[in-house]
Design a binder for these strands. Structure first.
Lengths: 141, 141
DNA sequence: CTTATTGCAAACGGTTTGCAGCATT
DNA sequence: AATGCTGCAAACCGTTTGCAATAAG
C-alpha cells in the first residue's frame, strides 16, 4: 500500500488522500467496482469527496497502469487494482465480475500463439471473458 | 440474406426495409461498426431513417441472437452480424476490431475447461480479446 | 384490420470538463 | 511558493424512451 505512494512519487504524481482511499477500495474489493461504487465507499470515510475526483483518479491510475479498466456488456466501466495477468469472469447479464488467475492457461495460450501468429498483427495481450452462470440458486429475474 | 426474412418471420418480427438495410450494412462491413456508423450507411440509401430506429433494430437483433454486440475500451458499442463462435482483435487503443476465427483454439479451450472446472460457476461461453498492434507503419500518435 | 415498428424529440445516465480554491511537494 | 489536484456545476454524448403516425402481416 505504501508501494502506491512510491509509484505515484516516481511518476511525479501527488499522493492525495483521495487517491490513497480510491486505491484501497480497489484493493479490498472482491468484485470489480464501478466508479459509482468506489465513490460510495470512499464517501464513507471522506464524505466531501466528489464523483469527478473519483473519475479523475481512476483515469489517472489507468493511464499509469496501476489499475485495469474493464467494460461489461452494458458499457459501464469497472476497475480493478490487479495488473498481473489474469482474466475475468462475467455473469450472463454482464453484472458480476470476478478475477480468474490461471498460470497453466496463460502458458497454454502463450504456446499456442507463439506458434500460430496472426498475419499482420503483433499480439500484445490476450484477455479472456469467461461468461458463466453461478451454480447457486438465483432468483430467475 | 433472405435467410434474415425467414428468421425474422419465424420469430414473429416484421421484415421492414430498415431492418434489412441494417443487417446488410453489418454483413458488408469489414470492421464492426458502431450504431452511428450503421446509421450513416443506412442513411445513404434511406435518408429518413432515424438513429433511434438503428438502435432499436440493433437491440432487437442482439436479443434474437442475430447479431453480436461488443464493447471496446471506450465503452462504445460495436456490432457484428457473425454469431458463429469467434473472437475479437482489438487495437491497443481499443479502436479497430476484427474477427478472429480459429477452430483449433476453440477446441483447445474447450478441452482445457472441460478438465479444469471453475468452482461455483458453469461456463457458458469464452470470449478472447486479442489486443494487437498492427505491423504496418502507423503514425506514432 | 391489427399490431408492430418507425421517427421525432425529449430524457437519461455515465463520464468529462473548466475553473477557482486548496493541498501536496 | 509553485504546481497539481479537488470539488462543484455544467456540458457531453451514446443510448433509451414515450408516443402519434405509419407500414407490415
Amino acid at each position: 500500500m505504501n508501494k502506491l505512494k512510491e509509484k505515484l512519487a516516481s511518476k511525479g504524481l501527488k499522493a492525495t488522500v483521495q487517491r490513497l482511499y480510491v486505491y484501497e477500495v480497489l484493493l479490498n474489493s472482491r468484485q470489480h467496482p464501478t466508479a459509482e461504487e468506489v465513490y460510495r465507499e470512499v464517501s464513507r470515510v471522506l464524505p466531501s469527496v466528489s464523483l469527478s475526483t473519483i473519475y479523475n483518479t481512476l483515469e489517472t491510475f489507468v493511464e499509469h497502469k496501476l489499475v485495469n479498466k474493464v467494460h461489461n456488456d452494458s458499457g459501464i466501466a469497472r476497475y480493478d487494482a490487479f495488473v498481473e495477468t489474469h482474466h475475468h469472469i462475467y455473469s450472463e447479464n454482464g453484472e458480476v465480475i470476478a478475477d480468474y488467475y490461471d498460470e497453466k492457461l496463460a502458458e497454454l495460450l502463450n504456446d499456442y500463439f507463439t506458434k500460430k501468429k496472426i498475419k499482420g498483427y503483433e499480439i500484445k495481450e490476450i484477455r479472456l471473458q469467461i461468461i458463466c452462470s453461478t451454480k447457486e440458486k438465483e432468483s430467475k429475474k
